[in-house]
Amino acid sequence: MAKSIDVDNLNVYYGDFLAVEGASINIAPRTVTAFIGPSGCGKSTFLRTLNRMHEVIPGGRVEGKVLLDGEDLYGPGVDPVNVRRTVGMVFQKANPFPTMSIYDNVIAGYKIAGSRKNKREFDDIVERSLKGANLWEEVKSRLQRPGAGLSGGQQQRLCIARAIAVEPSVLLMDEPCSALDPISTLAIEDLISELKVNYTIVIVTHNMQQAARVSDRTAFFNLAGVGQPGRMIEYDETAKIFSNPTQKATEDYISGRFG
């Protein structure tokens, strides 16, 4: 189920502006990879190219290849809609559909695709996904209540449940804990380690301790200056990045001597 990601020399543009230059990365299946770096360095932008969400923004485009188990996401004849069904995403701000119940939020991916499953199958999917997101016990008695009525941390886990309900190959997380309190953050981090068994996970985070705790490998992004493209400076085992980085910029950043 989980797939590998191989990016080779990818340039990411907003219109004419080069946002990320020459990014290359190889991500093994069933691993957690963290992207760290200062704001505006292009890590979120790069993350969004991995499921072609970058193109949703007018003018958003890329040059280069992103291979998912060897298949180019940007190849001719590849529909971004299908890419996004294979590569799920969780956002910085928890975004359950405000008009839907908890139950409907979880099966939203199926409803969008016009899936004709019966009530029993949907019930199973909802239970399995909410259990997978460690939310089942908290909401099982109120599945028909609005998803937006949950607390921030619960909403974020609901979004994770919604993302894994459709059984993607890869799960992208864009600062999933930055708006959460420490306890909810811990809950999500525990969840990430559990999900790693089945999914390839890529997470953007501003919290370096979080990167150190949850990820196997870490990529450090930086940019030379305002208006300059962001670059991937270093990509290695997380332990090495945080103890003995090769690049001085990486060391400066993780030790707080930057800017």
Binding site: V56, V83, R85, F91, F97, R162
Partner: peptide, 10 residues
């Protein structure tokens, strides 16, 4: 965010 949620689900 709501629009992005729909996009991201394919």
């Amino acid at each position: 965010e709501t629009i992005d949620a729909a996009w991201a689900l394919g």
